[in-house]
């Protein structure tokens, strides 16, 4: 077939994107996976000791800090899930009561506009053991309240969770509100005519109708939790001790502070695996949805 320039220019325009994907994503992931099999310390070594290729992984799973990181990942995930619940409640209320909607929306969403470092700074100050909220509460007589959560390892994670929920509830509220608005308004009229109580309407009709929104929120939340790094740096810097380590923090710590490249790579690969475990249902869900809508169209 004759050479047609028009056929090649779009492919040519894709060269940068393809190159970036191939080098910075696919290639880089492969590189890290390879490094995780080597004994690299501060500098990369490219020899794999085939008698023990998974030694970095063995070390990783024997590491106490990694165990704490995984545990904290789950705690953070479960705790942050409150943001979805909270976001749904806010959205449901704003959907029913139009007054002040734009004002409330503005207030609930503003934390999302600022850096997590700023969020962390603010909450770190609120949690300040000597001068923070606890001190203010104690000074008005509520001495039984303990609010210096960041000071002890047992409660520090809850402080991080509170800040995360504060930061992200507005986001889930926005997603939920969009989901609620897409529900046919006749359902509300029909429920009113049938005399269905509001509680039953939500639990039996509305929430099941919004299951895709909920699943989407859950997946986004999980992916966000895996990436959680900034907020830890700003609030606790991993401490006290290693009590607020999460995988993202652990990995970067292993790389930059400890200079242990092979070990950090193994941790990064584990992060990728965790992401894949969460990501896979999303892909399947999307595929399933596409098949369903495709079938509906036929």
């Amino acid at each position: 077939m004759a050479f047609r320039w028009s056929r090649w220019s779009p492919q040519l325009a894709l060269v940068p994107a393809v190159a970036v994907t191939a080098v910075a994503f696919v290639g880089a992931i492969g590189w890290t996976i390879y490094l995780s099999l080597t004994r690299s310390r501060r500098l990369p070594e490219y020899e794999i000791d085939w008698s023990e290729p998974l030694r970095q992984y063995t070390r990783l799973f024997a590491d106490d800090a990694w165990a704490i990181s995984l545990k904290n990942l789950i705690i953070l995930g479960l705790g942050s899930a409150l943001a979805i619940v909270f976001g749904f409640i806010l959205a449901a209320m704003m959907d029913k009561e139009k007054r002040g909607e734009s004002l409330f929306r503005t207030v609930f969403l503003y934390p999302l506009a600022v850096s997590l470092i700023v969020t962390g700074t603010a909450w770190r100050w609120l949690f300040n053991p000597e001068l923070g909220v606890e001190h203010a509460l104690h000074s008005i007589g509520l001495t039984w309240i303990n609010f210096s959560w960041l000071a002890t390892g047992e409660t520090a994670m809850y402080g991080v969770i509170l800040a995360s929920v504060w930061q992200s509830s507005g986001f889930y509220m926005a997603l939920m509100l969009a989901g609620l608005k897409s529900i046919n308004s006749e359902i509300w009229s029909a429920a009113r005519l049938d005399g269905v109580s509001l509680f039953r309407l939500y639990t039996e009709i509305i929430i099941p109708m919004m299951k895709f929104t909920f699943v989407t929120c859950a997946i986004l939340l999980s992916l966000g939790v895996i990436k959680a790094y900034d907020v830890i740096v700003a609030m606790t810097n991993g401490g006290p001790g290693q009590s607020t380590f999460v995988p993202a923090y652990f990995t970067i710590q292993a790389l930059s502070a400890k200079g242990n490249l092979g070990f950090a790579s193994a941790a990064a690969v584990m992060m990728l695996v965790i992401t894949a475990v969460i990501f896979l249902p999303l892909v399947m869900l999307t595929a399933w949805q596409q098949r369903r809508t495709g079938r509906a169209a036929h």
Partner: peptide
């Protein structure tokens, strides 16, 4: 996740 491509 960013960490997996960070060192490369």
């Amino acid at each position: 996740p960013f960490q997996i491509i960070m060192f490369p």
